[in-house]
Amino acid sequence: MKVTKPATRPARPYFSSGPCAKPPGWDASKLATESLGRSHRSKIGKARLQYSIDLMRELLRLPDTHRIGIVPGSDTGAFEMAMWTMLGARPVTTLAWESFGDGWVTDAVKQLKLDPTVIRADYGQLPDLGQIDWANDVLFTWNGTTSGVRVPDGDWIADNREGLSFADATSAVFAYPIPWDKIDVATFSWQKVLGGEGAHGVLILGPRAVERLETYTPAWPLPKLFRLVSKGKLTEGVFKGETINTPSMLAVEDAICALEWARSVGGADGLIARSDANAAALGQIVAERSWLGHLAADPATRSTTSVCLTVEGADEALIKKFAGLLEAEGVAYDIAGYRDAPPGLRIWCGATVDTSDIEALGPWLDWAWAEVSN
């Protein structure tokens, strides 16, 4: 039976890693601020950087014990900065169940040569978190962007841990409650749940991480972009808007717009509720179609932001054609699964997407499926 093109389109087509449009209510005129075109070292520049940090603290409900710094290189730069400056003092355990976690394994093994304990799981699965030795420093992704698998909560992180917990939380912050007392190091970037611009990363340090930085010197040289300590003390200016290198003030203003919008829709609770509603709407679409499934089989560890789907009988060519049809219609962009993941789809359900747009996507998936099946 031929399936015709649906009459209704999503108002905001999808990217696999985030929305292609700004959050509802985003106003480009807000970018006309005095900070643009001014030095990040100027009074207004530093004030805007500090304001963005204050907004992140408010929305993340981050305690005063934790510091927030804006650093170069997106989430990757932030996480590698943490690895290069703090690892080596203790044995290391790395967890990998998707490509970015596997990247941290590569850094630990091949670059830093730390001989870590590596605990892996296949795409769609989560490793046994109960086997972790918390005498070690532990590296993990809170939400596996390329596998759609997340940790269920923070209960598995030991309160009496001797090592540090390093959380790559780039597609998790602003979408899940984060127990900050369990996190010593967290990193993220603005382009995921906030839907902002890339380039810059955010580094969050708890008091135990600061202690490590001030009492331990790595055996390897550190490039200038990674240096967080001067004369044995944390460079506090980095966490007060005095960035290590020159940031894009346009990207900072874009992040501020997104953060102010997030405040307007209910802050952390509002953002979490929007992601949850979107994931539930997509879950209903999947439940109603026998040819669709979730790569993450366990709902307790299934992402509510980067949702990865299986497609019956799919190979790389079928998924490429499927995604191409939707892109040609202006319905969805780049929703093919990550290149290292099993062939499938990846739908962004973060807070900047409206649930009505997720619902409108369902009939278009039916149309594309009918086209590739025929």
Rank of each mutant, 00 (worst) to 15 (best):
D128V: 03
A135D: 14
R57C: 15
Y51Q: 12
S29R: 14
D137A: 07
L49I: 13
F15S: 15
P19C: 02
L60C: 09
F79E: 09
K30G: 15
F140C: 02
M83N: 11
Q111G: 14
L112T: 04
G130K: 03
T106Y: 06
T106E: 12
R61W: 04
T106D: 10
P127G: 02
I44H: 10
D107P: 00
P127K: 00
R90M: 10
Y123L: 02
A82L: 14
L139W: 08
G148F: 00
T76S: 15
W26I: 00
G130L: 03
G101W: 09
D102L: 06
S39N: 03
P116H: 03
P24L: 08
A89K: 11
T85R: 11
T85A: 12
P152K: 03
L114K: 03
C20I: 11
S39H: 00
G77K: 07
Q125K: 10
Q50N: 09
S99D: 10
G144E: 08
W104L: 14
N143Q: 11
Q125G: 04
G73V: 09
M56T: 07
P116K: 06
L36F: 10
S39C: 00
R48P: 05
T33F: 11
S16N: 14
V92N: 05
Y123M: 07
W26T: 00
N136A: 05
G103T: 11
Q111C: 10
V71W: 15
D64K: 02
G148I: 00
P24S: 08
G69K: 10
K43V: 14
D107M: 08
A28M: 13
